Computed example of a mutant assay.
Amino acid sequence: MVGERLRQLRERLGIGREELARLAGVSGPTVWRLEKGERGGSVEVVARLAKALAQVGNLELREVLAFLLTSSSVPSLDPIPTRSLPVRYLTVREAAKVLGVPIWEIREAVRKGVIRPRPRPGPRGATVISLEELERYAREHLEAPAGR
């Protein structure tokens, strides 16, 4: 039960498992096992995760703990202000949508090394691109003069 709520809150806040684990000072597999219900979290681990989530979402710690440990809702998350949260990485699909180009063009730029992707904090196996890298690519390759 705690794991499912932890996953829901983490996803609604837009934070990856590894990043949450790093902020809470626990291992990534610990967060994964807790979310999957393969492991029950100790009070200390749940408290650390709750504190990290509260900081990321700018929420009250007691509200986050109440949400994780009981069936109460977190009032400050309804609706969650997703645009106020800093988005630092985009998937290839999201990057293509933001730039208004086909997905294959972004994939090709990554393959050729024109765009330098990051191995994390995206989902396992996903290529993620930092916003700074995407802006650099757009300036250098998409806003080039037509004679180029």
Rank of each mutant, 00 (worst) to 15 (best):
L68T: 11
G25M: 03
K36R: 13
V2A: 09
V110M: 09
T91F: 06
G100R: 06
S130I: 02
S84L: 01
R93P: 08
R118M: 14
P121W: 10
I80K: 08
T82W: 00
R17A: 10
L49E: 15
G25H: 03
V98K: 14
V128Y: 08
R120K: 15
A96M: 06
I15C: 02
W104G: 14
V64H: 09
L59E: 07
W32A: 10
A144R: 05
S76V: 09
E44V: 08
S72P: 09
K51W: 12
R136K: 13
A21R: 00
R7H: 06
I129H: 11
L68E: 14
G25I: 00
R118I: 13
R5L: 13
V2N: 14
T91G: 08
Y89Q: 02
E63G: 10
R33Q: 02
V114N: 07
G25A: 04
A126D: 12
A95V: 07
R17V: 14
R124K: 11
S71L: 12
L131H: 14
A144I: 06
E60P: 08
M1V: 07
I106V: 15
L9Q: 01
E44G: 06
M1A: 11
A21K: 00
A21D: 01
D78M: 15
A54R: 11
L9H: 03
T91I: 05
P117R: 14
V46P: 07
A24F: 00
L53D: 11
N58K: 12
E143K: 06
P81G: 05
K97H: 06
L59Q: 06
